[in-house]
Design a protein around this nucleic acid. Structure first.
Lengths: 225, 225
DNA sequence: ATAATTAAAATAGTAATACTATCTTTACAA
DNA sequence: TTGTAAAGATAGTATTACTATTTTAATTAT
């Protein structure tokens, strides 16, 4: 399915496009693994360079700093999600069923997808759960937003909001509802793992967390006429 | 109303209780102002010490590191919120009206409250909006949780969930709903300020952001039988 | 085939961060 | 007056987050 797709991202996200070179792809691959295991705060370019057998200076030719690399990775994820959603709903006629599928993909992104050769999607999904909000929760947010760094996330939200408006054109909170649902998907997954008393979602038999029922209950209750 | 209340927090949150000494209170007061203006990443104990006319070493006698100080401040905020909620709903008979008041307090915490002499609540609220999730989005979360560092937040959520269960005892997602609503209140306020296309909430005439209508629409739609 | 260009490695260095340690001064209490 | 604890003063360390420079290797253009 997603094997070999090339994801092109806003050029402000990097200095040199990491998709273009072996070293660039290695930076992405290795940083995903390392941020997943170390957490974003403990992750450094020095450790990354050491792990890759490269140098700090080489990495700085691709990304100005580790925060930009995080923004890049999260953006990559949203583009990948948009693609997954697109190919999975295009043959569904009913808008309500399309939305159910969308929520399922958002809540269970690593189920039922073909392995991507480049990026460890399961690790990236864990990064999204724990670190995604740090990509915008920064004093730089307005500056970065002006440069279009959150465009991929915003486009994904808009597409889903448009589906909602198809079902209920009078609903005035479509954008808020969508961003809430996406953020909630990751947040509740985090709570299920670390602060279980804040949620009702539990691991199922396969040790997986499925927030999609909660999300769809909220969504369809909210937009009911 | 809240003038002079002394808020007592889990003793694992600090080394020496900052409420006990002048220097301690100064640390809290000044750090709230500085984290608000600089953002958490740019804020350091060195800058704080310099601003206070004290020394780094002195601050380290109160908090092991700046992250713990953040956890302390956020925890302080939830205790303060719980208190605001308590005194504001105790004379309301109807549970539904109580919940509406709760959402109003969560969404508009700085409206209609008596000034606290110690802490700049408006600055602290801005910190909550931009930095609160960083208090738990860390690799240390399980360790900190075990020590009870998130107990105040969890207790607040539980109290609100109990109100919801009073209205609809069969609702299976009460905890998830509450944590979603609280997180959403701050998130949508952030989006309204910095990523407006992700929300439908706009500043009103007084330049204030009021998410409470959105929250109540979601809440009551979700728990409707 | 050679020269020109570019990528990346190797090395070095700096300012700031996140601490830790120690010693002195001050204050107040026993 | 002596003891104790808080806080100030000072110093120092390892790590972080970079920047700069030089060298080597690989590609591409002529």
């Amino acid at each position: 399915m997603s094997t070999g797709i090339k994801i092109h991202l806003n050029e402000h996200l990097f200095i040199r496009d990491p998709e273009d070179t072996g070293l660039g792809r290695d930076i992405i691959q290795t940083s995903v693994r390392m941020i997943d295991t170390l957490g974003f705060e403990q992750f450094t370019f020095k450790k990354l360079a050491h792990e890759m057998g490269s140098t700090e200076a080489s990495i700085y030719r691709y990304f100005t700093n580790k925060h930009k690399l995080l923004v890049y990775l999260i953006s990559w994820y949203w583009v990948w999600q948009e693609y997954q959603i697109e190919i999975n709903i295009k043959n569904i006629g009913d808008t309500k069923k399309q939305l159910l599928k969308v929520l399922d993909i958002i809540a269970n992104p690593t189920v039922d997808f073909t392995k991507n050769t480049q990026i460890d999607i399961e690790a990236l999904y864990r990064i999204v759960i724990s670190e995604a909000s740090k990509s915008y929760l920064t004093k730089e947010v307005d500056e970065l937003n002006k440069k279009g760094m959150y465009a991929d996330y915003k486009r994904l939200c808009k597409k889903i909001a448009d589906l909602i408006l198809l079902l209920n054109p009078d609903y005035i909170y479509a954008n808020a509802l969508v961003s809430m649902l996406i953020e909630t998907a990751n947040q509740q997954a985090f709570f299920a793992l670390h602060l279980p008393s804040l949620t009702n979602i539990k691991k199922n038999k396969d040790e997986k967390i499925d927030v999609s029922n909660f999300l769809s209950q909220i969504l369809f209750a909210a937009i009911k006429k």
